[in-house]
Design a protein around this nucleic acid. Structure first.
Length: 482
DNA sequence: AAAAAAC
């Protein structure tokens, strides 16, 4: 099976060949003919399956074919609109469109917030057939009348479930209202909740269903492992692990922006090249950091879930969950950054006692029992092994409520104990680990952020995650929380 | 629970 057999015009086949691809992936085999035929599509493809090319190629095909067969007055009007939930994702789709459109006379641009609007306005004035955008800035342009969506023939909603999570639905509806009713629409989503189905009902006509991998499934090329560890020792364990894989890159996920910045700083100060990416960084910083990581100039990228979905990094060998995500779906998305395109990948999670509950949710969703390996010198607190599979969740939850102490008590004991004991607790063994990491330094002092970074923040970097108060949600399982 | 996204 070749791209030629899928019916793509020669200009696109040539661009595909230039990019080094010879065989379409399963989703491309399915999606390309359906989109070329003009059908609406509801696509459920796992990431790393070639989904982006799966819709950009037939989209370019249709636009190019149409332009060549008519003297359209709508030349250089916006004819295709692709919406993505994050700026980086929009940029990535834009790169794909640019790659494949090099031999067709179609213009594309990327529209997102956080950067100067004037440059985008200038660009739009040139006449742009394909606009890739995040919803907020697009509506901004609509309001300023610097974009006209009345001639849009094709709409793509990428990562629709993510858009839903992020509260984009009102924006999406507004945008849908600005588009011609006679158009082709494609909707891609990793999961199919009722809300997604509702949205699909509203925006798709007789959609063809494309579902390559069973939803929520994770790539079989990924090796999962959990390292049980006390929350206070996570940073040190991370440094330890990274030192034992000196030549590999890793994407490290954390739950909050504060931990994100501090962890990157911690790694830097321990000789591991690292930077942070999260929503409070300037767009320029975000772009530069991601580029540096993709180019291999940066060894470790510490990220919030801004980078959890869709971001494509060539042959990334490691995704490390420094903190376990609180929903199982997020785990699937995060680790989906590795093991892409048939490559091998490793999903490593550092899990403390408080996070065991989420681990159970994850294992249930991915239908896999993740092996647990304790790294010598980084043993978890004894609580980790208590109370079987539920990790003492209910017990702790009710205790917190009962003492009315804003769940201070159990948590205060947590950082305090290791801090006081760290220096003296390990006299029996060398305080210098085999990898050269100096464990003799007290925990707090070895991670203390410089004054500038600490100023204005109150949260502790390694505070154990707050316990979720979702007793009902647990019982409901995946039935329908949220 | 926090994250993301428009000014």
């Amino acid at each position: 099976m070749s791209f030629a057999e899928l019916g793509l015009i020669p200009e696109l086949q040539k661009a595909v060949a230039d990019a080094g691809y010879t065989e379409p992936t399963p989703i491309q085999r399915q999606a390309i003919p359906i989109v070329i035929a003009g059908h609406d599509v509801m696509g459920g493809a796992q990431t790393g399956t070639g989904k982006t090319a799966g819709f950009t190629l037939p989209l370019l095909h249709r636009l190019a074919r149409h332009a060549s067969t008519s003297t359209s007055p709508a030349r250089h009007q916006t004819r295709a609109l692709i919406l993505a939930p994050t700026r980086e994702l929009a940029m990535q789709v834009y790169e794909s469109v640019k790659t494949y459109s090099k031999y067709v006379p179609l213009r594309a641009t990327c529209i997102y917030g956080g950067v100067d609007m004037n440059a985008q306005i200038q660009e739009l004035r040139r006449g742009i057939e394909i606009v890739i955008a995040t919803p907020g800035r697009l509506l901004d342009h609509v309001q300023q009348k610097t974009i006209n969506l009345s001639q849009v023939e094709m709409l793509v909603l990428d990562e629709a479930d993510r858009m839903l999570d992020m509260g984009f639905i009102p924006d999406i509806r507004r945008i849908l209202g600005l588009l011609p009713a006679a158009r082709q629409s494609l909707l891609f989503s990793a999961t199919f909740s009722d809300e997604i189905k509702k949205l699909a009902d509203q925006m798709l006509k007789n959609p063809q269903l494309i579902e390559v991998a069973r939803r929520n499934m994770v790539s079989e090329t990924i090796t999962h492992v959990v390292h049980p560890v006390s929350s206070g020792m996570k940073r040190n364990l991370l440094a330890h692990l990274l030192r034992h894989q000196p030549d590999t890159q890793a994407l490290v996920f954390v739950d909050t922006k504060i931990v994100c910045g501090r962890l990157a700083h911690f790694l830097e100060r321990h000789g591991i090249s690292a930077d942070a990416i999260h929503g409070d960084k300037s767009q320029q910083q975000r772009t530069e950091t991601l580029e540096a990581f993709k180019a291999g100039k940066l060894r470790v990228l510490v990220a919030t879930d801004v980078a959890a979905r869709g971001i494509d990094i060539d042959e990334l060998p490691y995704v490390i969950n420094f903190e376990l995500p609180h929903t199982a779906e997020d785990y699937v998305h995060r680790i989906g950054r590795t093991g892409r395109a048939g490559h091998k990948g490793n999903a490593v999670s550092l899990v403390c006692a408080e996070e065991k509950h989420w681990l159970n949710d994850i294992q249930k969703l991915i239908k896999l029992e993740i092996p647990q390996e304790i790294v010598p010198g980084f043993e978890p607190e004894p609580e980790f092994f208590e109370a079987g599979s539920r990790g003492g969740r209910g017990r702790r939850g009710s205790a917190d409520k009962a003492d009315g102490g804003r769940e201070r008590a159990p948590r205060a004991a947590q950082p305090a104990a290791p801090r006081a004991e760290r220096g003296g607790k390990r006299p029996g063994r060398s305080t210098i680990a085999p990898d050269g990491f100096d464990f003799s330094k007290p925990y707090e002092s070895s991670i203390a952020a410089p004054a500038a970074e600490t100023a204005g923040t109150t949260a502790k970097p390694d505070e154990p995650p707050r316990r979720g108060q979702r007793p009902v949600a647990f019982l409901l399982g995946g039935l329908g929380r949220k």
